[in-house]
Amino acid sequence: MEFQTNILKETMTVSLIGDLDEKNAREVREYLDENIRQYDFYTLLLDMKKVDFMDSTGIGVLLGRYKKLQSKGRELCVRNLNAQLDKVFRVSGLYQIIKAV
C-alpha cells in the first residue's frame, strides 16, 4: 500500500494506492491513525481513485477510523470510488455514515 498525503486548511487528504483488503488493512489502519494523532484537521478525506478493490475488511478499517474521528468531533469523507467500491458502500450502508464528496 502507498499513501500520498497533504493538508490544506482544515482538510487532510490521503490518497490510497492499492487494494483495501486483509493484506493491507493493518498498514492502512496504522498509517491513518498515526496521522490522526499527529495532525490537527477537521476533515479526513480519503481519495480512492487508485483503490481498485475493497471488501468487508476495508469496511471494518473505514468504520474504525470513522468512530475514532467522530469521538474527536472530526469527520471522514471519501471521493473517487470506482463501481466495485460504490457497490460495497451501497450494500453495506456505509454511505449512510461516510459522506462521498
Binding site: 471488501d55 468487508s56 469496511i59 471494518g60 468504520l63 460495497v88 450494500v91 453495506s92
Partner: peptide, 15 residues
C-alpha cells in the same frame, strides 16, 4: 475488538 465489520456473508449474499 479487531475491527472486523461482520459484513462478509452479507456481501457474499448480495453479490
Amino acid at each position: 475488538q479487531e475491527e472486523h465489520s461482520g459484513m462478509g456473508f452479507t456481501i457474499m449474499e448480495a453479490f
